[in-house]
């Protein structure tokens, strides 16, 4: 796609409703995931103090879950972005025809 990018005008894609829809969906996906992760990372520890005896166990679960979330979200985004690129490529090919 990048090689073609050098010769292809972005205008066709920019005007394409399907492309705009894809972009909106991707932006929403990224916004939701990053916001949720930030809120979980920064504010979840504040809730832990109310757990009484389970406080220590959940504190460690929280820490290990950060590792799992980071790896899992990285993988999910990798898959998502790959699918996004394929869809854009299809739109691109249609426009270029």
């Amino acid at each position: 796609m990048e090689e073609k990018a050098e010769t292809y005008s972005y205008h066709s894609l920019q005007q394409d409703q399907a492309f705009r829809r894809l972009l909106r969906r991707k932006s929403l996906f990224r916004l939701v995931i990053t916001s949720c992760l930030l809120v979980f990372y920064l504010f979840f520890p504040l809730l832990l103090t109310n757990l009484g005896e389970l406080f220590v166990m959940f504190s460690w679960i929280y820490l290990f879950s950060l590792f799992i979330f980071t790896w899992l979200l990285g993988y999910i985004y990798w898959r998502y972005a790959k699918a996004f690129e394929q869809k854009v490529q299809e739109l691109y090919d249609e426009n270029a025809r």
């Binding site: 990224r30 995931i33 992760l37 990372y41 820490l63 979330f69 990285g74």
Partner: peptide
């Protein structure tokens, strides 16, 4: 103990922000 490990997780989680919003 616990807090030393908590410090490390900040470095790790920061890569999600980098991957999702900045790298590409």
């Amino acid at each position: 103990g616990y807090d030393g490990f908590l410090y490390a997780t900040g470095f790790l989680v920061s890569y999600i922000i980098l991957l999702f919003l900045i790298a590409e």
